[in-house]
Design a protein around this nucleic acid. Structure first.
Lengths: 155, 155
DNA sequence: CGCTTGTTACGAGTCGCTCGCAACAGCGGG
DNA sequence: CCCGCTGTTGCGAGCGACTCGTAACAAGCG
């Protein structure tokens, strides 16, 4: 479904891993091999792996790591605010580091994904906020749209 | 989770049902009692019932109508363009008549939902379109946000 | 090196649908 | 008004994406 990604690449790297582990330790959590592997997989599988993608990468290195551990780790890291996920069309949640949260646009026809730049997003946010009082999240849900190539198809 | 709805009510009524059945017949489909009941439930359960809500209402009148029939009918009507659904936070799809498609704002804290008025939406759409070429859908995905009451909590 | 307490593997369970199949029922033709 | 063609339905199994209870396990502080 998702045929193509473009736009700038994320700038996630190993420092994200150590910062996440740091955060984990600081809040009384433990730094386990499994968690290290999940975080590394998250870095390697940029830009937007699903829990399955992460599990697959982890399994390549440590086949005994259970799926539920991957899910639990992903949830723990989400609660810590280290990572976040986005829902794109139907299908599983896609994960990314929290410092890489940007609003997504997804084409409903071809699945192509783009990001909204910060300036445009802030403009939209201000418009919505003054009209309704609601302050838009940057991430979490992708904005459903039609990309230029598919735009002729419908309103 | 969803504590409160506000904003103008939809204007869905019985004419939507007959128009939908009409459309169904025109495209070679059959007007069955089950479909009538699903459509009626959709009208009665405004503004945004889940498939379960619809099935429950149908079951109150005709207990033998199977869940899968409800899902199939909702899918058929979606393909016909008569109805549509929106994803609000995690949880099931919420259905509504297609003529009632409006962009939704959902508060991530309290679940309160609001609509974006047409004028504001068009302004946002124009902004996004000129920045990225993507043309926003009116419906399908809710925009995740914080409502005025919960706004202090996070960025 | 223990001990405490957070983590993990495993497997069963849940939620929200989806599908194959045989029985059934609209509805256009005769 | 009945026939029969073909779209629909009921039923139950299946599935994708998680979630949870439990007992074994292992960080990391003392």
């Amino acid at each position: 479904m998702i045929a193509h990604w473009y736009g700038q690449r994320s700038m996630v790297d190993d420092t994200d891993v150590s910062q996440a582990l740091e955060q984990l330790r600081r809040t009384g959590g433990r730094v386990t091999q499994q968690r290290r592997l999940v975080l590394q997989a998250l870095v390697d599988a940029q830009p937007h792996p699903s829990a399955e993608d992460v599990a697959e990468r982890v399994a390549a290195v440590a086949p005994d790591v259970h799926m539920s551990t991957v899910y639990r780790t992903l949830n723990t890291l989400t609660e810590l605010g280290v990572i976040s996920h986005v829902h794109i069309d139907h299908g599983p949640s896609l994960y990314h580091f929290a410092d890489d949260v940007r609003p997504h646009l997804v084409c409903r026809q071809c699945g192509r994904v783009d990001h909204v730049d910060a300036e445009t997003f802030e403009a939209v946010r201000a418009t919505i906020e003054s009209a309704s009082g609601f302050r838009l999240d940057r991430g979490h849900f992708a904005w459903s749209a039609n990309c230029p190539a598919c735009r002729d198809d419908l309103d």
